[in-house]
């Protein structure tokens, strides 16, 4: 049985390696294992998920300096990090935009923005634009909640932060907080995927 299972896993990985580009482009679904990465932060230091030894999970958030939705959510992203870092679920922000196409998303501007706002979390550069397509991020901001398990980091939630970008005080449902709370208490996540308007990720590919 174990042998069969191992073979199935092998077959699955073989198939995924040979899958068409289109399938890969779709990115992760709920329950998929998310890739780790080694991406430079605003000071050039490489950061990986594996660096966070005590983490129970991660809030990987694709975001940037320029998108009005990203800006509208900056304070709430900081608040998420402050609230959940101590509970073992830190925010890892990744800027996926190509600075040649969006100059104000280059690392200098990232540095400036992180300083001005007092980002409490790593703000990484998807230099080769290889990570966001694997996750399937299409826009900023785009949140992926991962749960660390012994077999890898499992995608538990994909979507937006809450149900009102324009006014934090009018929010009725905090999708991300609900998802993290449920994950941490071992309960079923009430809503695993949500959608919101965002800025398309700037890529030449």
């Amino acid at each position: 049985m174990k042998y069969l299972l191992a073979n199935l896993v092998l077959l699955a990985s073989f198939l995924s390696h040979n899958g068409t580009l289109k399938e890969i482009d779709k990115g992760y679904g709920i329950g998929d294992y998310a890739t780790d990465f080694s991406l430079p932060d605003i000071n050039g230091k490489k950061v990986s998920l594996a660096d966070f030894k005590d983490a129970k999970g991660y809030l990987v958030i694709f975001t940037c300096n320029t998108c009005p939705y990203s800006i509208a959510y900056e304070d709430r992203i900081i608040a998420l990090d402050k609230k959940y870092k101590t509970k073992g679920v830190p925010v890892i922000a990744i800027n996926p935009n190509d600075p040649d196409l969006q100059p104000a998303d280059d690392v200098q501007h990232m540095k400036k923005r992180a300083m001005e706002k007092g980002f409490t979390f790593p703000y990484l550069v998807d230099e080769k634009q290889e990570i966001f397509p694997q996750y399937g991020a299409t826009k900023t901001p785009h949140v992926y909640l991962l749960e660390k398990t012994k077999n890898g980091n499992v995608v538990r939630y994909i979507g937006t932060i809450d149900d009102n970008y324009s006014d934090a005080s009018s929010v009725k449902t905090r999708y991300v907080e609900n998802a993290v709370d449920a994950m941490l208490s071992g309960e079923e996540i009430p809503l695993t995927t949500t959608r919101a308007i965002g800025c398309s990720i700037k890529s030449r590919k």
């Binding site: 009725k172 959608r195 990720i201």
Partner: peptide, 17 residues
């Protein structure tokens, strides 16, 4: 602002970008 409620009504596969 409650975009998650209407984006899928425009198209089930629209990510919102």
């Amino acid at each position: 602002p409650d975009q998650n409620s209407w984006i899928p009504k425009i198209d089930k596969d629209w990510s919102g970008a």
